[in-house]
């Protein structure tokens, strides 16, 4: 049988018969029966899952309801948000500095940035956090003064690096390595003609970065940065190893006491999901702000 066959003969006269004026022709959209079947199947599965959530007593929804807005949990959510905000803010600030070090003309600054990014991407976050937590063991005192010389002010590290600041420090330093690469990628994505035009106009260097380069870089930085913030937000659950009362740690403490593991894990889960949703909404608006003047 030939691969290309002529259309069935019966079609030709049919087409000839429809000689309605062009404008009056009715448009018949393509039907997607496959899509309908897939949707129906998915709906059935979802319904089944929802039914299980409601009827299976193992989920212990009353316990969930009791703890979801309990004060300890709310405070823990606050701590988690704090860790996220400080970790992100410090992390991206340092990341910005590292990105421009890596883009600078100084081979030394470039090497330092590359080294930093290498090390802090290599060391697992949990290992790093434990290091910071044990900083007091490494350096008994922290002196501020002339490098290698006498110190003017000195701190006891045990008092200085409390668990919370150790956690923020660890999260921020870890985040900075990733943020640096994201920012650098964003800056490189900006057409070099932009800085040339800015330089030709005599716009001061910092202003070039702040007003011309970064706003344009933001368009490619933001989606990646949002990913990072969300993963940091969930990553805060790692600091439960340092006995900090964040969301996951608090849930663990409570189910350790009352044995209601599943509903308390659900409490933590639902909070993570809700807040991630809020972050995504925020992301949408920030991205829209930086899309000014763009056609796409």
């Amino acid at each position: 049988m030939p691969l290309t066959s002529d259309p069935p003969l019966s079609k030709a006269p049919e087409r000839a018969r429809t000689d309605a004026p062009e404008a009056a022709l009715e448009i018949v959209p393509v039907r997607h029966p496959g899509r309908w079947i897939a949707s129906a199947l998915t709906a059935v599965l979802l319904a089944q899952f929802a039914h299980g959530l409601v009827t299976n007593p193992g989920w212990e929804w009353p316990v969930f309801a009791q703890y979801f807005t309990a004060e300890t949990i709310l405070r823990a959510v606050g701590t988690t948000l704090q860790l996220t905000v400080y970790g992100t803010a410090l992390g991206f600030l340092l990341g910005l500095v590292l990105a421009f070090m890596r883009l600078s003309d100084s081979p030394f600054l470039r090497a330092v940035a590359v080294g930093y990014i290498w090390i802090f991407r290599a060391v697992p976050l949990i290992v790093q956090l434990l290091f910071w937590f044990n900083l007091a063991y490494l350096y008994k005192r922290l002196d501020i003064g002339i490098p290698f010389g006498p110190g003017f002010v000195s701190f006891d590290t045990a008092g200085l690096v409390g668990a919370m600041s150790a956690a923020v420090l660890g999260l921020a330093l870890h985040q900075a390595a990733y943020a640096a690469e994201i920012v650098r990628g964003g800056v490189l994505a900006v057409d070099s003609g932009q800085t040339q035009a800015a330089a030709a106009l005599g716009i001061p260097r910092l202003r070039q970065l702040r007003r011309i380069v970064l706003p344009q870089a933001m368009r490619s930085i933001l989606p990646n940065a949002a990913n990072e913030v969300i993963s940091l937000f969930k990553g805060t659950s790692i600091v439960s190893v340092m006995a900090i009362g964040e969301l996951f740690y608090q849930a663990q403490v409570i189910y350790g006491r009352n044995g209601r593991v599943v509903p308390l894990l659900m409490v933590a889960t639902v909070w993570y999901v809700l807040l991630t949703g809020a972050l995504s909404v925020l992301q949408h608006y920030i991205e829209r702000h930086f899309a000014k003047g763009a056609t796409r």
Binding site: D191, Q194, Q196, A197, A198, Q216
Partner: peptide, 17 residues
Amino acid sequence: QRTGIGFVFQNFHLFPH
């Protein structure tokens, strides 16, 4: 110095944002 010298580029290089 450059503020005293205007430069117009082939591809305009306006700031799109």
